[in-house]
């Protein structure tokens, strides 16, 4: 009994040693702030008027049988508010774990896990709408529509313009240009995150509303595949005043595992409390 007690303790300590170290072999994120396109970065005029965009994060998982209806609702809202509501399907939580086929693909990633860990109550399906109230605030799918409407009616504190451009000369180089115009003063640091989502991914999904419940060729859309700037993004301004403009130009080598034609780059601007000031699905330019 005594041996078991201390063996148990030693195993705990060993586990702590392993989890207590984030060894980063290559900390360099593929995106660089150093724009290296041959053509000059596009210039943007200050944007003095524009709509409020909304980020709807749908926390889902492939083994969450109640999640497909929430995903369908998000899709429907996206269609209704075309171009202003941006859906991000965040696969995270225990139901996103990998198990036997057909659930043997890991759709989670560091960013999805980080967002999941921020939630005040971790359950699938659940969502966040513009992270209003801070990253911990969760919204049940029943309330998504009303909150989205409410957010869409707000006057934005900042406007975003931008573009994603595949380099015509350098294979796999992609340039991102994000121009922000602040329409009111913001206190504290403002961060810009570039989040990548991918659609038309065919893989298994559990759906309690379907017969059979396991759908092996489910079409996953808006799936968060990673960030180009870290999940919180980079500080682009501190205490900006009304009228302040900031343009960020990035270049990255596009990872071959992401299908560019199915990908969306979502520019998400957040304030010091982690609330979304505005967001934009960067249009791909030829």
């Amino acid at each position: 009994m005594r041996i078991s007690f201390f063996t148990f303790g030693l195993l705990g300590l060993l586990s702590f040693c392993i989890t207590g170290c984030d060894v980063i072999d290559d900390p360099v994120i593929p995106l660089t702030i150093g724009y290296r396109g041959e053509a000059p970065a596009p210039s943007f005029e200050a944007m003095t008027a524009g709509p409020q965009h909304v980020l709807l994060e749908d926390f889902t998982a492939h083994q969450c049988g109640n999640c497909p209806p929430a995903g369908a609702l998000a899709e429907q809202l996206s269609d209704t508010h075309d171009g202003r509501l941006h859906v991000l399907a965040v696969h995270a939580g225990s139901l996103a774990a990998v198990s036997d086929a057909p659930f043997d693909t890991d759709w989670t990633n560091a960013e999805a896990n980080a967002y999941w860990s921020q939630l005040a109550f971790q359950v699938n399906p659940i969502g966040r709408v513009n992270r209003r109230g801070g990253p911990t605030e969760i919204v049940s799918p029943n309330n998504w529509s009303a909150l989205v409407d409410n957010e869409l009616g707000l006057t934005p504190a900042a406007h975003i313009q931008g573009a994603a451009i595949a380099d015509p000369n350098v294979s796999d180089d992609v340039h991102f240009h994000v121009h922000t115009t602040f329409s009111e003063a913001i206190t504290g640091e403002v961060r810009l995150a570039l989040l990548l989502s991918e659609s038309h991914l065919i893989a298994a999904q559990l759906d309690y509303g379907n017969d059979p419940e396991v759908i092996t060729d489910f079409e996953h859309n808006h799936m968060l595949r990673g960030s180009l700037s870290g999940e919180d993004g980079l500080v682009i301004a501190t205490d900006p005043t009304s009228g302040t403009t900031v343009q960020m130009d990035y270049t990255m080598v596009w990872p071959s595992e992401w299908a560019q034609e199915n990908s969306h780059i979502l520019a998400v601007l957040t304030n010091a409390q982690g609330e979304v000031l505005n967001c934009l699905d960067l249009p791909w330019s030829p």
């Binding site: 702590f16 040693c17 989890t19 207590g20 170290c21 984030d22 060894v23 980063i24 900390p27 360099v28 994120i29 995106l31 660089t32 702030i33 150093g34 980080a114 180009l228 700037s229 870290g230 999940e231 919180d232 993004g233 980079l234």
Partner: peptide, 22 residues
């Protein structure tokens, strides 16, 4: 081990991932 929240930092033209657990 120290835990401190963090995601990325920018340095020169690089964006670097921060270790949260050191």
């Amino acid at each position: 081990s120290r835990f401190q929240e963090g995601s990325t930092i920018s340095k020169d033209s690089l964006i670097l991932e921060l270790p949260q657990n050191v």
